[in-house]
Design a protein around this nucleic acid. Structure first.
Lengths: 192, 192
DNA sequence: CATTCACACTAGCGCTTGCTTGGTTAGCCT
DNA sequence: AGGCTAACCAAGCAAGCGCTAGTGTGAATG
């Protein structure tokens, strides 16, 4: 009947679904709309995905995995000092908006439409990403680079970061590199 | 057939609708669910609201109006110096989460489900609220209280602020007053 | 050449949706 | 007493929903 592999075809369909989910919202996006966007008939859709929920889960999983991979890579490629690591994380985050913006918008706005299983599974992925941020923030706090309560700083940064999805245009004037620097500079205690 | 006044009955119904919209999301909340929550039958609902969309608009309008009113009042009641004004705004924002959390969650997550007319109308309200923040941020920048690019600081703060809805418990340990102080302290350039 | 397989199609079932209609009730004003 | 009105109800319609069943097809595999 259907499969759950990660064929290239399925990946492409997932990308198209993300686009529609952003435009219309998950609930308003019908399987018929999805099928038309994909150039197939609505029945054929269920050859690739068990049900509509699985498409949502696939979209979010794809986006989060990429963000996690890019963040890891950025951390390994950069200097050891806390400031460079903070900047690397910020730059990586903004870079994923270039390729996976739709997926991140969906993850942000349609999270609660996931069923319990998917939410648990993807929750671990997201926790891993946030844990990465918290490590880097902790290092910066320990080095006296930024100030404030650990818990609070973390929430504050995650909020500002997630919000970037609403206004940042990665193809606009400011490059991810540049904006990442500015974000970190804003947080930091200035040198005296 | 129906009316659009702001009777006390309608206000109560709006409050109950907000609760459901948060729990289930706008699209998954059926008029029958709304009616049951309100203790009436689904048909009776359309005596108070023209259609389902109007309920959503009413929820968001109520929340935004209250936030705006509280912010205005807080600014008029506090000292003139930029730091006090920043704190007053932050405290006011956190305080509205006490009484209007549901409305704010709905405004954040279901904004795009508004039709064009409602979005334009409520957009002005929200702009007024954000403009208030930007004024206060500008004053703080001019006074050298905080640093960074005007546009960037503003987005950063609005992001962190909107995110509070996801984690801040106004009945928890930290009072709005206290947390507002901490938030502002985090932003500020430390005294030397 | 026969079989299998991934992928797509047609057709439609069973159910839910937002909303309408036409009529009833209870309280207020004169 | 009689009229007015806000508030409600029972019943149901037309449209749309997610999803299933059964079939066809062309390319790869034995």
């Amino acid at each position: 009947m259907n499969v759950m592999n990660d064929s290239p075809r399925r990946k492409e369909l997932t990308r198209q679904a993300a686009q529609l989910f952003v435009q219309e919202g998950f609930d308003r996006t019908t399987v018929r709309m999805l099928a038309e966007e994909m150039g197939i008939k609505s029945g054929s859709l269920f050859h690739h995905f068990r049900d509509k929920q699985e498409i949502l889960a696939a979209v979010i999983e794809e986006g989060t995995r990429n963000a996690l991979a890019i963040a890891h890579a950025a951390l390994e490629a950069c200097d050891r000092d806390p400031e460079a690591r903070l900047q690397a994380m910020a730059r990586a985050h903004l870079e994923t908006l270039l390729t996976d913006r739709n997926a991140h918008v969906v993850a942000l706005y349609e999270w609660r439409r996931l069923d319990d299983d998917a939410r648990a599974h993807l929750g671990h992925l997201r926790d891993a990403y946030e844990a990465l941020w918290e490590t880097v923030i902790d290092e910066a706090l320990a080095a006296g680079l930024i100030q404030g309560d650990r818990f609070l700083v973390s929430r504050f940064v995650m909020g500002a970061l997630n919000w970037t999805v609403r206004w940042y245009d990665p193809e606009g004037e400011r490059s991810p590199e540049e904006l990442g620097r500015e974000l970190v500079a804003m947080l930091m205690v200035p040198r005296v």
